[in-house]
Design a binder for these strands. Structure first.
Lengths: 215, 215, 215, 215
DNA sequence: AATGAATGAGAGTTCATTCAT
DNA sequence: GATGAATGAACTCTCATTCAT
């Protein structure tokens, strides 16, 4: 007995949304399709009208979100003119994606190990591309004197770690609004890269004061 | 028929070592006791002479490593006299534990979600304690003017994220020696907390040179 | 949306043709309706406009081919005047049906076990009728001295086994033309029944020579 | 709760015996492991202490029985001195294996198609070896004048088909004793190969009488 | 007449766990 | 202490079948 009026596309979206959420909470290996089906509101077998395997589910989520992230970098970060502005934009983007926006992003970091070799390669390739944008910004900032970084690669890792760590503790229903959070982390990153801080109109006043004091 | 010369205690240690390694690589849900038994060199049934359940295995690993970490903080970090020196020691300790020393530490971050509620509470309590040491250092550093931090809690998270991120990419067989790595991250953290850099006897000379150049 | 120009009757024929082929290759239990639908070029659900169940599909194929076979026996074999000629005709018919003509015939032997009891009885009744024609020919041949058979029933089984075995190895794209193959098997059967071989104008010369020599 | 006193080797034999019987009756695709487990008297999961997959079960049965068959040919058929005696022995062996002795033999003919490519190749190789023994006997019999066969290959197929067909209808609880059955089929085969019948000390008297009568 | 979306039962397989020996 | 044999529940995935559109 089929659910009346059901539409495939809607079901598919529901499946991927529910899967991302479930996996983000319990991990790929920790979830089972029965639970997913229940969350979606269908029978287990019906999932297979939309996916060909549990693995594919994971891959599609990861693939989708990484491409989205990369597109977003291209659309917002690379548009900025200075390394500093680009870095600020990168932080903003990363934070936003890693907090309220998508549980899928969380998975992109923690569930890579559950990908089969072929899929693993593909997603890692995208991660590398994403992180390369950050590294390039850092490199250019060093060249034009905006940043002072001794080991760019390590600094890149430090930034990624710091920003990604947000999704471990961030609670969208907490008291800290995202734009405030973003500002704080922008300041953290600016400090990390040893940035000159004249242009920092986006940063909180206290920070600006300190920057002045440091000179 | 018991393997000749095998001694229980040795087997137990082997089990925990192998389990930590396996879980670090594939996650708690991703491993199975058959594989563990094979790695240890016994039959599955024999594991149950040492553990009462798979869950207990995870809990004991986490419990052990968190206590070790806390003890280490007490023994090395809190011994230092200034917030700056303490922070440097904290970074050194954390980095060392998260690289070559223990695969168990990796798990302490990523496998919390697989703990049953009761066990979860216990381990989180230990994590909180551990992180509280860091926060206290930051707070004291702010008070005595060593650090300039607007939001201590956030800064704490940023540091933890940054430091913990190391275990994602660090390769013990790579070219970067641990003490150099440690130095770099110490510098990152110093920047993050807006530390005055006069006293930085623990930091690498290169950095000091740069600091000079910056002025 | 219905495929333009498709007509039910054509689809039905396609279904039965594809089903016979699939079942002949993989067995009734080994096929699935999804594959059948794909081969036919429709969706699975559409099959049910023509069949009421997978079982019915099998039954109809078997029923159809057995009736065809029986009709063919009546039309060609029983028309002959002597037991020898009838037997030759029977062999020819059986071989032809079991080689290039119908994959359905293959199924008639191997897939009986997959029929539900009721259907099983019906098809077996037809098989018995078919084999009875052969037995009657053998019996009459014994009576009039054309054949020399001690145990007619066993001889019948031997012939059926021998002839049916053809479909196991016969390759329609091989070098052996069907009429040659038929001649060989006619000779085999003639030998089996201890037939006097005067009339054997259809048989290869060598055999005739041998027959002469034997006397 | 383990069944007390169970012994692995016994269970394994039970599994293979039950599997051969089940598959012979319903086909590889037609059986399910739950039924097999029930027949054996264990839980489904326990089967996997002895097999690694359903497919392996089929392969092992087929592999075992084909090797047994080949060994038996070497031990009994090839020991005979004349092609006629060898052929008689071959028939006897084949009939015996295909009737009361082993349900596994039935499978060896009908379930080949369910083997995965790799396994299929291996079993077919054994079948070819087995059938080659028969062909060689036929060939030698032609050379020394014992047999008169125009197309040896076809004759081989005819014999195999005839003999193998026995397992379709043979009922071990019927009235026809195996040795009688064997004698009849030996006579069928002798006729098929156009054997001179002077030497037929191995054949039943009835047959010899008939042979006389024919002259 | 055909499609697309769903069902629900059941398949092979895995796995933590138990326990007599 | 260790093993080998078993359990039973749960897993991913398949499939015949249904039915509104």
């Amino acid at each position: 007995m089929r659910t009346v009026g059901s539409i495939g596309e809607v079901t598919e979206q529901k499946i991927y949304a529910a899967a991302a959420e479930l996996i983000a909470k319990r991990g790929y290996e920790g979830i089972n399709l029965r639970q997913l089906a229940k969350d979606v509101g269908v029978q287990v077998g019906s999932l297979y009208n939309y996916i060909s395997s549990k693995q594919e589910l994971l891959f599609n989520i990861l693939n989708g979100v990484m491409n989205e992230l990369i597109d977003a970098v291209k659309a917002t970060v690379l548009m900025e003119y200075t390394p500093t502005a680009q870095l600020q934009a990168f932080v903003k983007l990363h934070i936003q994606y890693h907090t309220n926006k998508l549980p899928a992003v969380v998975i992109a970091t923690s569930e890579l190990r559950s990908l089969e070799p072929e899929n693993y390669k593909k997603i890692v390739r995208l991660r590398v591309e994403y992180e390369t944008y950050l590294r390039e910004i850092l490199r250019k900032g060093c060249e034009d004197g905006s940043f002072t970084i001794e080991n760019v690669r390590l600094c890149e890792y430090a930034i990624i770690g710091m920003l990604t760590g947000v999704c471990v503790w961030y609670n969208p229903r907490g008291t800290l609004p995202i734009n405030k959070l973003t500002n704080y982390y922008q300041e953290f990153v600016m400090r990390l890269v040893g940035a000159e801080t004249r242009d920092a109109n986006a940063r909180p006043t206290v920070v600006r004061a300190k920057a002045v004091a440091r000179r």
